[in-house]
Amino acid sequence: QAIENQLKICGYRSNMDVLALYLARLGLRSIPSLSQFRRLRYLWINDNKIQDLTFLIKNYSLTELYLNNNQLTDVSGALKHLCSLQILFLHNNELKNLGKTVKELKGMISLKTLNLFQNPLAYDPDYRLHVIHFLPSVQLLDRKLVTPRERESALHLFNPKRAWVMQSIAFGQRGETALGTTVGSGRGTQPARRPVMPSGHEFGNNTNKVPFEDPEDAVLVRAMTRSLMEFSSVDWNKVGTCQERRLKDKAEEPPEKLTVQFR
């Protein structure tokens, strides 16, 4: 009855015309299937007594969904198909399992705004960082902007291996040196073997072009004209902070740096 009244108020002539439904603050405990509204994009069901969301099974076009202030205890299997959602309000419900709730929302790659506060799951000590890490598209969480520092902290907490790799890579640059450049760590490095240029061929000499007897020589010459890609990494755990350096009496040895070159 509430849905029919809303359709009359809005003057919709057919189900395909329905883009928005406002069913908030009606004391509803359940809602019949809304699958007939295939183009429904905006849905307000907040401030009711809803306990399950099975009526949303075929509303794939939803972009904004307001489910706050209800009696939801679990959303597993009810929302993961809503891949177009951009705004989702679930605050002030009874959601308890943080892992299951976040897993349900993982497929929402367009989700920008999410509210989960005033749920039991929000009292998890790592709640905010958990959501930020596993739902990277979210930019506004519980009415607070997600900061780069929070994303970095979440990465260190939930994916320390990747965080270590990103931290250990000091820089990447294009090397202008030839293959004979020293390659290796910063201490006790050995010069790499320098390829010998085939006789009778010089770079930039357009008047003296001697055909190569060995095709591999031609490949070598072409390779020598290309620039190198050089990556260096440092173990930052062994590099002292500014305060540690000031407290030390003796000079600190330079950190060991590993440099790798490739084409």
Rank of each mutant, 00 (worst) to 15 (best):
Q1A: 13
I3F: 04
K8P: 01
I9A: 15
I9P: 08
I9R: 15
C10W: 09
G11L: 07
Y12S: 01
R13P: 00
S14V: 05
M16S: 15
V18P: 06
Y22L: 09
Y22W: 06
R29D: 13
P32E: 03
S35A: 08
Q36L: 10
Q36P: 07
Y42W: 09
I45H: 05
D47C: 13
D47I: 12
N48A: 04
Q51P: 01
F55G: 00
K58Y: 03
S61N: 13
Y66C: 06
N68S: 07
Q71T: 08
L72Q: 01
L72K: 04
L72I: 00
G77S: 02
K80D: 13
L82V: 04
C83H: 14
S84A: 13
I87W: 07
K96S: 03
G99T: 15
K100D: 13
K100S: 12
K100Q: 12
K100I: 13
K100W: 04
V102N: 09
K103P: 06
E104W: 07
G107M: 02
G107V: 10
L111N: 01
L116K: 06
L116Y: 07
Q118V: 09
L121S: 01
A122W: 03
A122P: 06
D124V: 10
D126Y: 02
Y127M: 09
R128Q: 01
H130F: 12
H133R: 02
V138W: 02
V138T: 02
Q139P: 09
K144Q: 15
E152W: 00
E152V: 06
A154C: 01
L157K: 02
P160H: 04
R162Q: 15
R162H: 14
A163P: 02
V165K: 11
Q167W: 13
Q167D: 14
G172A: 14
G172H: 15
R174C: 10
T181F: 05
S185W: 03
R187Y: 15
R194S: 11
P195T: 04
M197A: 02
M197D: 08
S199V: 08
F203H: 01
N205E: 05
N206E: 15
N206M: 15
T207R: 10
K209N: 15
V210T: 15
P211C: 07
F212S: 02
E213P: 05
P215S: 00
E216N: 10
D217A: 09
R222Y: 11
A223S: 11
R226F: 11
S227D: 13
S227G: 15
L228Y: 13
M229C: 14
E230Y: 11
W236A: 06
C242S: 14
R245N: 09
A251D: 07
A251V: 05
P254M: 12
P254D: 11
K257T: 15
T259N: 05
F262G: 06
